[in-house]
Design a protein around this nucleic acid. Sequence first.
DNA 1: CAGTATTGCTAGGTTGTCTAGTTATCAGAG
DNA 2: CTCTGATAACTAGACAACCTAGCAATACTG
Lengths: 183, 183
Amino acid sequence: MSAQPETSSGYWYATEGQRPPALQVLEAMRAYRAAETAMRLRTRESMGMGERDVLALRYLLEADRAGTPLSPRDLASKLGISSASTTTLLDRLTRSGHVARRPHPTDRRALVIVATDEADCEVRSTLGAVHERMMRAARALTAEEAATVTAFLHAMAEAVEAVDEPQSKARVEDRRHQGPGAA
Amino acid sequence: MSAQPETSSGYWYATEGQRPPALQVLEAMRAYRAAETAMRLRTRESMGMGERDVLALRYLLEADRAGTPLSPRDLASKLGISSASTTTLLDRLTRSGHVARRPHPTDRRALVIVATDEADCEVRSTLGAVHERMMRAARALTAEEAATVTAFLHAMAEAVEAVDEPQSKARVEDRRHQGPGAA
DNA sequence: CAGTATTGCTAGGTTGTCTAGTTATCAGAG
DNA sequence: CTCTGATAACTAGACAACCTAGCAATACTG
């Protein structure tokens, strides 16, 4: 976690005891990410399921609430896994009592996956509190602050999303020598 | 993994005129997380390795730069995996030429893992640009804005971290007993 | 009604993780 | 110095979750 200063920037705040605000921000991002990852791990363990199962359950609950239940196909595309994996995932979730397969009202070869009340309660008890706390923190911001944070997060998402890939997923040897020296 | 936030949000506050800023913030958080997840997936595929391998490589490079190289044991605890998994992980990374096992200077049963220059270049070329863009976005903030964002992120991390309240496990009877990743 | 597309499931194979046990080395007690 | 327990990394075997390929049932279309 060494946040070393950019040598090119030349500014260094060591004597003031304060580092450049930009570094503090990025470090806060990292800290949040770490905290979230840890939370996910705890959830995963507490519910005795894998990461994907939790995510699938969240999608299902969300869809249930929205009144647009999901089929295994929808779930597969949302999760980015294959149809076969979705079948086994639903087997797991069905066996553990979190979801149920219902026949599709109009398409007799399709299914509708519904989350059980137990799953709803369980997810709510583990993730609802977290969401509530996050919401509280977000509500504590003034409108201006919220706008600042939102804009920044969008900028970050854009920064992460913009991938200029001069090289495709070809072999690695091709780009072993181009160090952008951007550090 | 682009979803429906734009449509739903636009649909939503079109009549209201203003949506609660807190919701916008939380949605921006979600959007950022999705973008980052997608980026990780791209990186993972571009480098032809698993998620953990990339993370391990980042830890190793970071430690190398800090002058405090890691042993397999350190890596295992940082990654939260077992000693055996670490061995196979190092086998993979060694075989692909990303790291090398060196003898520990003082402890003859221990090892020191060093990342190769190729790995350094590779990670820099894939993640360096992203980091640079993030840094630019962070630097674009005024000191006040940065303070706001930092404080908010810390609040969020705290919200996510404090999850140790008693959960009702009443409905949980048929869960697995040996969850993956159990420490 | 025939032909194609789609849905979910099954079979077989790959990968990454785990637990348990082994070997080599270290550190401390006698 | 030697013996004993702890530690570091590795090996072996098993398991969970994913994938691709292919199948039966059903929907849609000409």
